[in-house]
Amino acid sequence: MTVREKVIAIIAEKAVLDASDVTLDSSLDALGMDSLAMVEAIFAMEECFDISIPFNANDPEEGRFDISSVGSIVAAVEDLLAQKVT
């Protein structure tokens, strides 16, 4: 599985959807994810990729981790993975 596929699988599981219903331009709101589901998804990504994601539920829009769409989350995770390698 690619990073994109894994991130989509994690988000789909927490949103209780099929992966086929989650696209890169989906917003989390549109997927019906509340803040608790988001916190759980972030944790699952950290465990899956062995990374540490800077995310505070108090300011999700202003955080250092862009959660405006599934695509932005994939990109942010890829960034963190790239930083980990270097």
Binding site: V39, F43, F55, N56, A57, N58
Partner: peptide
């Protein structure tokens, strides 16, 4: 106790 609260990501 603190680690558990960290998990919820609501702490400053």
């Amino acid at each position: 106790g603190i680690k558990a609260w960290e998990g919820l990501r609501v702490m400053s």
